[in-house]
């Protein structure tokens, strides 16, 4: 009887699956093609550069977010962790660029450790556990920074935000390399496979002897470190550490990129390249609308529609 039911819907199923798998890449191509034809000065070096520089931090944060979402979790604290990382930079910049970066990343690591422990050991819901740090993190960052924006004059740090390597900005290279590494991490390592299995069926993974707690903690730590790095890069680009602005609403941009990229919120699957494409789609849509003189509010509404479409397309079809 299932065969009877399956027959007529077969083509649609196939199509749905195709859209599910490749829709987001098609969207990137369509957006680029549209702009190449109808938007003046869009597909030129200057503009493309701007777009990429703007989207790079989102991609970096979204990569960590994709891992967390793959475990059936979510990390709302990434924006605040960026602010925290930004806040500590001026404190250590006196010792040189590397000590400052390392401290920022350590702050991200500590934040991830807190989140991971709350989720994996204490057993809190991820949304609640990370909400605590979303609220507290920015407050702490403002305290560290004494409540004000601090200009940074370190030439090395500024170079990180503005220089090119082989024709592309450093931040873009960093995002690209991290995306590649995350892809390998998910596909090829024990940790990555265990992460996906835990997200897919936590009870079964536990019974199969997987180190569930350790994998969860490592995942939140990775997400925290990536957010910390994004905070450093944002500071470099702004040439200022501004804990009240850096990373604002980044958690939502990152979750959006992950979801639009086809990673289901129900866990058990991580689409790394999809996440990159998801971030690009959101960036391009906004840029396109702005270039056509539509107000930012319109862009936001269009983005909302895209999120709904993405969730609709990505929803798991019942196989049973």
């Amino acid at each position: 009887m299932s065969e009877l039911a399956a027959r007529p819907g077969w083509d649609r199923r196939q199509l749905a699956r195709y859209v599910q798998n490749y829709g987001v890449y098609a969207a990137v191509v369509v957006l680029l093609a549209y702009n190449a034809l109808f938007t003046r000065n869009f597909v030129d070096m200057g503009n493309m550069r701007t777009q990429l520089v703007q989207v790079a931090p989102v991609i970096i944060v979204a990569l960590g977010m994709a891992l967390v979402i793959g475990t059936e979790g979510v990390d709302l604290s990434v924006g605040s962790v960026m602010a925290l990382a930004a806040a500590v930079i001026p404190l250590y910049l006196g010792f040189g660029l590397w000590p400052a970066i390392i401290m920022s990343l350590l702050i991200g690591l500590a934040a991830g450790l807190v989140n991971g422990t709350l989720v994996a050991v204490v057993g809190l819901q991820p949304i609640v556990a990370t909400l605590a740090l979303l609220v507290a993190g920015r407050g702490i960052a403002l305290v560290i920074a004494g409540g004000q924006l601090k200009q940074v004059h370190n030439a090395d740090l500024i170079a990180l935000g503005t220089n090119d390597v082989a024709g592309l900005p450093v931040v873009v290279w960093i995002a690209a390399v991290l995306a590649l590494l995350t892809g390998l991490l998910v596909r090829r390592t024990t940790y990555g496979r265990q992460l996906v299995a835990i997200g897919g069926n936590r009870a079964a993974a536990g019974l199969a002897g997987l180190p569930v707690r350790r994998v969860l903690i490592v995942t939140y730590v990775l997400c925290g470190v990536l957010a910390g790095l994004a905070g450093v890069l944002a500071t470099a680009r702004l040439r200022a550490s501004d804990p009240s602005a850096i990373g604002n609403l980044m958690e939502l941009s990152a979750i959006t990129a992950v979801v639009v990229g086809g990673t289901p919120l129900s866990g058990g699957k991580v689409r790394v390249l999809g996440t990159v494409a998801g971030a690009l789609v959101m960036q391009l849509v906004r840029a396109t609308l702005i270039k056509h003189d539509l107000p930012d509010s319109t862009a936001q509404m269009v983005q909302a529609v895209i999120i709904l479409v993405a969730v609709y397309v990505a929803r798991e079809r019942r196989t049973r």
């Binding site: 496979r193 996906v196 299995a197 897919g200 069926n201 009870a203 079964a204 993974a205 997987l210 058990g268």
Partner: peptide, 15 residues
């Protein structure tokens, strides 16, 4: 408590 439904046969076996 057994299968990880989203993963392949291979991945379920070697889990």
């Amino acid at each position: 408590e057994g299968i990880i439904p989203g993963l392949s046969v291979r991945e379920n076996i070697v889990l």
